[in-house]
Design a protein around this nucleic acid. Structure first.
Ligand SMILES: [Mn+2]
Ligand SMILES: [Mn+2]
Ligand SMILES: [Zn+2]
Ligand SMILES: [Zn+2]
Lengths: 139, 139
DNA sequence: TATGCCAATGCAACAATGTTGCAAAATATT
DNA sequence: AATATTTTGCAACATTGTTGCATTGGCATA
């Protein structure tokens, strides 16, 4: 199970730049999801805020990371699986956000349930976000 | 099926003010969920932005309205059912947001499915938000 | 109905988050 | 190495949300 930063960038026809390498590396090393602010902190003053915004946007478009809806309406990002290449996302798993520590997990093994909706509604995407206490924070 | 604005405010021990009456009335009349900006538009320059924020916050605390997580991380609010009084929310229904018109619906009849999570995770809340096309927007 | 207390509002100031245009710098292509 | 293309940093701006404080208005009580 290894992840090659440069390979991923090349595979997605992105030029290899410092910011892209460093930011993608952060995601690979990180356990949970990252918010824009996390990245800004971790990388110090190395990159401009705008660059981080644009890099995240590019990664989402390419299917390298996906956004995670959260109960508190903050924006978080996490690595996609291989299946998401080419701008098409297939992250049909449940997300969990800890009420205590705020860590956001991709529960890759828990897939989102199929729902039947009232007549006239067509489904393009289903997001399930669970809140509660994570392993570390239950006391 | 009628909804008394003043009754609701009294029941929740809130003093009857213009902003509270008008904003609650907007929710009662509205089909879908409302964002802060919607309310700001609808009510013109009648109320200060800050008043709207504080009113929404109060309504959420009292269990008069609930927030809706959306895939695009914008904050929306919708009326609660009676069961939510006293600050305890029981809005265990699925939410739907139309990709075209942006209207956000409470699907009160579709309840969120029970999930089993990995060991160590405890669930306090489950949010399901579905995107797609609504009745009006399917072509 | 008038008095007075307390809660709610408006205003100003600020913080956080996100977007855009453009020149300079870095990367890719030849 | 020279050139063409992309990406970056900066500045300026827009939007969203928060806080403190003086003023206003609602409500209870007399
Ligand atoms: Mn995920
Ligand atoms: Mn709802
Ligand atoms: Zn935790
Ligand atoms: Zn629609």
């Amino acid at each position: 199970m290894m992840y090659s930063i440069v390979e991923t960038l090349k595979k997605n026809q992105l030029s290899i730049t410092d910011s892209r390498k460093k930011i993608l590396e952060l995601f690979v090393r990180s356990k949970g999801a990252l918010a824009h602010a996390d990245i800004e902190h971790e990388s110090g003053t190395e990159f401009d805020r705008v660059t981080i915004y644009r890099t995240l946007q590019t990664f989402v478009e390419k299917g390298i990371i996906h956004t995670i809806p959260t109960a508190d309406n903050s924006v978080r990002y996490a690595l996609c699986k291989d299946a998401c290449a080419g701008g098409h996302h297939h992250d049909d798993h449940v997300h969990f956000m800890c009420d205590d520590c705020g860590t956001t997990y991709c529960l890759d093994n828990i897939s989102v349930p199929k729902l039947s909706l009232p007549d006239g509604f067509t489904i393009s995407q289903t997001d399930v976000v669970v809140s509660g206490k994570c392993r570390k924070c239950r006391s």
